[in-house]
Computed example of a mutant assay.
Amino acid sequence: MRFELDADQRDFAASLDSLLAASDTVAVARAWAEGDHEPGLELWGRLAELGVTGLATEDTTVEACLAFEALGRHAVPGPWVESAAVLPLALGRDLSGTIATVAVPPRVPYALDADVAAEVFVLHDGRLHTATVGDRVGSVDRSRHLFRVTPGEPVGTLELRGGLGLGVLATSAQLLGAGERLLSDSVAYVKQRRQFGREIGSFQAVKHRLADVRIALDFARPLLHGAAVTTERKYVSAAKVACSDAAYLAARTALQVHGAIGYTAELDLSLWLTKVRALRNAWGSPPFHRAAVLEALGAG
């Protein structure tokens, strides 16, 4: 089967990418990490006007994946997975006018950005409950503010098809987008950095490393889109594994080709390096999803 985006999907992805490219998302992410949410909330409003927050309720999972890939590529902060992908279907209502977040222990033990969310929920004993926000927990990604929560009143049920599955897909798409950005920045850097009188991108070893990343990302994308079409658990888990591995390879390669400067927080590359590290285990780690695929295949 050959999967290709139609013209409307390509136009939507292009318009979203254009908006984010003009929004200085690096500055937005850095401000969010420091606790200044105003630029991020302003960007949230513009994306809501474009329809990003309503994609889940419209059952347009492919378009949702395109949107979340763009969010990952531009390091947009905020509880997008929770508020725009998981909760609208879990609650059965449109959340485009507000920001909400949810914790789903044990795979998602903390509520992301509960300090800016108007509604906070937690999955407890198989049901969705309102939640009381507790202490903040540190994250390797400084733009991800995690909070402990305790359950309150039950409000509904969180189904795999409507909430958890789309949460995994959205996180996978963010990883894919972050991996693409890391690869793009790495390619640009190796064309500029000179060593032994030559650009380091001309060295065969560097070319091979970047080519491996390109192949991994290209293999992950059809898995993601295929999972978005079927929404079956085994395909969703396979997409999370592929996107996690591809993005992690992109992060390790980017760090290697950038050398010592790649370790500095001042370099914008750090925004994507830390985001990949955090998202890799968000909504289920690669070992968890590999086990889900094996189980679905009858391999125990």
Rank of each mutant, 00 (worst) to 15 (best):
V108G: 08
D115I: 03
Q192V: 03
A22K: 06
I215N: 10
D113V: 02
R93Y: 05
V241F: 07
S15V: 04
A13F: 08
Y110A: 01
T101H: 08
D59T: 03
E295H: 04
V140W: 08
G51R: 13
A211N: 13
L20V: 01
R209I: 00
L273C: 14
V236N: 04
S186G: 02
A238K: 13
T98H: 08
L41Q: 12
S186K: 09
T130W: 02
A291D: 15
L160G: 02
A282W: 12
L87R: 06
L175I: 01
V104M: 13
G298M: 06
G72Y: 04
L279C: 04
R107D: 14
V81M: 10
L123K: 03
S15I: 00
D135R: 15
G54E: 15
E82D: 12
P105G: 03
A188G: 03
A7M: 09
V149M: 04
D17N: 11
E153T: 12
R221I: 00
D218H: 06
L255E: 09
E58F: 00
P286G: 11
E42D: 12
A84D: 14
S139P: 07
R252W: 04
T101I: 06
A242H: 11
E49G: 07
D59V: 02
R290E: 14
F288C: 08
F219D: 11
A178V: 02
T132H: 15
A111P: 09
G259A: 10
A29D: 04
L271T: 02
D135A: 08
V241I: 12
D94Q: 07
R252G: 02
W80R: 06
A131W: 04
L169S: 08
L66K: 03
L224A: 09
S172K: 07
T61D: 15
A67P: 13
L20G: 06
D212M: 09
L182E: 06
A48E: 15
A254H: 11
L19C: 00
